[in-house]
Amino acid sequence: MGTQNIQPAIVQFAQLDKLLALGRANSLWPMTFGLACCAIEMMATGASRFDLARFGAEVFRPSPRQCDVMIVAGTISKKMAPAVETLYDQMPEPKWVIAMGNCAISGGPFVFEGQYGIVEGADKLFPVDVFIPGCPPRPEALIEGILELEEKVTGSRRWPRVEVG
């Protein structure tokens, strides 16, 4: 199901779509869904110091049916993979996926020859919109990932980019 193509609507409302995209991008509802270490950093991002609420994405919902962004925070094991896929399928369209951390990107440190237990990357299961590297990524990185996703949804960046240096 994850790979099926969504047909574009027959009647297009360009300005309305833009407005909807703006609304969606500025109030992303992520799913409360932690797999491993990265989930702790995800919690830290939502908690007092980093305060994801500043960017409008703090409404963590336990039910996939109320979410529009799934943050895959941790290693997906082969035993867990069907459950993760089900969660993705249960989310209503439009939906986005952030692969947080090296495990969700490629299997991270747990890939070795002859490994028998993990899925090597969330994109093996469903399409991923934003990848955040790190083991685990810092909360700032997750915030940047969410801003990146906002940019993908609306086509323009709301916040200035932080210059490195």
Partner: peptide, 25 residues
């Protein structure tokens, strides 16, 4: 077993020092 990450198997596959980062996880 939903997050079984094969630490014990990995221990047999890497050198003594290479296993060290696993312990943090």
């Amino acid at each position: 077993g939903y997050i079984h990450r094969m630490h014990e198997k990995m221990g047999e596959n890497r050198t003594w020092a290479q296993f060290l980062p696993n312990t943090g996880r």
